[in-house]
Design a binder for these strands. Structure first.
Length: 122
RNA sequence: UGGGCGGGCCGAGCGGACCGCGGGGGGAGAGAAAACCCCUCGAGGAAAGUCCGGACACCACAGGGCAGGGCGGUGGGUAACGCCCACCCGGGGAAACCCGCGGGAAAGUGCCACAGAAAUACACGGCCGAUGGCGCGGCCACACGUGAGUCGCGUACAGGCAAAGGUGAAAAGGUGCGGUAAGAGCGCACCGGCGUCGCGGUGACGCGGCGGCCAGGCAAACCCCGCCCGGUGCAAGGCCAAGCAGGACCAUCGACCCGGCUCGGCGAGGUCCAGGUAGGCCGCAUAGAUAGAUGGCCGCUCAAGACAGGAUCCGGCUUAUAGGCCCGCUAACGGA
């Protein structure tokens, strides 16, 4: 598990993933992937971005929680030593209300399948 | 009892030897950390809007005057407030109660649309023969057609009037009687308002006596009066670490700064360009993060859960809010 420390914490780290990583979008979210080469740790790290367009503070926290839980539920399928950023789109609340966490997991798998195979940069 | 009015409170609950999250402590481990196990604490009535008031921090001291801003019935409460409580006044209601940006309009300036004659000033249409003038007539006087006398009738030229009419949110108190040529607070009675005196009240104010009719509204128009206010806000601010490359100009003959101006003060750096960093700790809390912690699932109950999540901390206000509970008051209406 150990999800709690595997987070991106600096805006610079987010910028690096946005700038140098690859991305794949679905209807409900955008997944950015960035393979780290220079650091010793083999951990997978995750950042979550939920803008105000999604809702108020309560709604945004709910979305973040659900995204983290669904993401780490897929930890078996994740490549080592990668940084991920999940950006929620405003339609994501419809998905959570309608299908719950299975729907989120499905959407994340779809994005992973589109983004990860090459692990290519730029 | 339904209804009405006021106030207060809750705002899903319980269970699961379930799966998870943030802080702290401990165990084991150990160079240090992470992984592992245990214990403990962990959002709201509004945490919100950021609208007031403080604390705190920096601006060298945080000073005076002007300018500027805020507040505004009275008395208390408070660290303070634009908040709270009680009371007063005005308006509404049958009552309980509710409503109120509630100082001053006889300090001055300004504004009062449309309509209307006229909006602090007036006379459109009007009224008036008491007065002067003019006209006619009678009487009177005489130098016999005049008048300087006197009386009557007519006339709105001079003059007097603002009551009734129309307009308007508002037209120089209202109603009645007297009064007059017509009228008018011109006089009187009552009411309203103003002033003054007495009494009651800490006070706003109330009650009563007396006086004279002079006083339109707007101060969320300028203004006047009283009280209050230095600025910026935790991205305040303090410390540590890392890193680069200097140059130009101004400045102890006083720069820069002290929100504006000025008085006054301070006393050694300041401004611009280029270059380099943009990491950690404190501030920061017996919840305390720094991409930001309270959820998921299952069962039952009420009966179907609304608005909604801390970010320096307190005291208020305002706004959002499904449903429910409790207390007190009132007695119009419906029922008995």
């Amino acid at each position: 598990m150990a999800s709690k420390r595997r987070r991106l914490s600096r805006s610079g780290e987010f910028d690096r993933v946005y700038r140098d990583g690859s991305s794949h979008a679905t209807r409900y979210l955008v997944l950015y992937t960035f393979p780290r080469r220079d650091e010793g740790s083999e951990d997978v790290r995750l950042g979550v971005s939920v803008s105000r367009k999604v809702g108020g503070a309560v709604e945004r926290n709910r979305v973040k929680r659900a995204l983290r839980e669904a993401f780490w539920g897929l930890s078996e399928q994740l490549p080592e030593r990668h940084d991920f950023v999940v950006v929620a789109r405003s339609e994501i609340t419809d998905l959570i209300d309608r299908e719950g966490s299975p729907g989120l997991t499905g959407s994340l798998e779809e994005a992973l399948a589109g983004a990860s195979p090459g692990g290519r940069s730029t």
